Amino acid sequence: MTDVRPAVEGASGTEADVLTTLFHSEHGGHEQVVLCQDRPTGLRAVIAIHSTALGPALGGTRFFAYPDAADPERAALADALKLARGMTYKNALAGLEHGGGKAVIIGDPEKLKTDELLLAYGRFVASLGGRYVTACDVGTYVQDMDVIARVNRWTTGRSPSSGGAGDSSVLTSYGVFQAMLASAEHRFGSPELVGRAVGVAGVGKVGHLLVDQLVEAGARVVVTDVNPEAVRRVLAAHPSVTAVDTVDELLTDPTLDIYAPCALGGVLNDRTVPLLRAGIVCGAANNQLAHPGVEKDLAERGVLYAPDYVVNSGGVIQVADELNGFEFARAKAKAAGIRSTAREIFQRAEADGVPPVVAADRIAEARIAQARGTDRPFA
């Protein structure tokens, strides 16, 4: 499950806070930010394009109310800015010819979402002429993308009946598994997972599919989830898997080799990192590091951290393939490259004496810089 909290702390501050981020912060530099409104349908949305150096900006549409924010509109804008920047790096490391973008529709989807609103939003996406390609995110689903695609062709994450690939969890989990093989190879000298103990926190769609692959590979798997039914489904499918009640039980388990967070973000923080006993962290959750500096804490504890935006990029690889007429085999072959990318990141981190997150950023930035200025048609 994707982290649903606002990505930027203090998003309810002054208007200058967001403008400073946009124009002056090292985390800014966005090419374009579009504020969208359609009063008849209640649509209020932000589309943030961080970079098109590698090609059209690709990233999902989040539909969220920001109920804990003093100023939901500003929280949405701040979230879109950070998420768009993250997509630039994710797409670059995934080897895609896409830059980074993200959109946020403000409001409770259970109360506000209608076909009319989605069509109004789709027309705003269409007005960008291909600079931004959308997909699913928190609060939006395959059927929503089918509606949006009725008014613009720059929509991915559609159902197979509408020419799309459908649920992206299959290739997301496959990519996580590939990154885990690279992590094991770097840490233990062999990619073999036979007999290795892996703790999976969160066994929804992606986590469950990951467990399937781990069991097939001969790993010893321990799981936990806040949803008891999700755990029951895993245990019914795999009698060899065991379960614990809390994430803390996984963190403190001295027998675990690999910890795989596959639920909410922010799980690696000042409280949890000291508890961690596994030598590798490699999971599907977004935004796993609660704040800058956590990556250094992990490195100082000797924990190999596989950057989440590399590990979980199988999903974006899948939706990007839709633009060429989706072929599962082609997309899977592309997702298999996550293993070699992770290997390259670990080697670069070791050579440069930096955490893997820093090495990953450097590799992505080099690719973006090399592409900048290249003519890339969007339409």
Rank of each mutant, 00 (worst) to 15 (best):
G60S: 05
P40V: 10
V46N: 03
A48H: 00
N91V: 11
Y66I: 03
L96K: 03
A65R: 12
A94N: 02
T88V: 08
D71N: 15
D71H: 13
S51I: 08
R44A: 03
H50Y: 11
I47D: 06
R74C: 10
L43F: 07
E97I: 00
P72E: 05
V104H: 12
R62V: 03
G95E: 06
N91P: 12
A78L: 10
V46I: 15
S51F: 07
A69I: 05
G42T: 14
D79Q: 08
F64W: 15
M87N: 12
Y66L: 06
Y66K: 04
A80N: 02
D38I: 04
A69W: 08
A48L: 00
Y89K: 09
N91W: 05
T61F: 07
G107C: 06
D68F: 11
E73Q: 14
A57S: 14
H98W: 00
D68C: 03
D108G: 12
T52H: 05
K90W: 01
M87H: 09
S51E: 10
T61A: 12
A65S: 15
L77V: 01
A78P: 02
G101W: 11
R44N: 10
D108K: 10
R74Q: 15
G100V: 12
L81R: 05
I47G: 03
E97D: 15
L81S: 02
H98R: 15
R44L: 08
L58N: 09
A94F: 05
A80F: 06
P40Y: 05
Y66S: 01
L96V: 06
D79I: 04
G95K: 02
I47K: 03
R62T: 02
R74A: 13
L43P: 08
G86Y: 02
I105R: 09
I47H: 01
G100S: 12
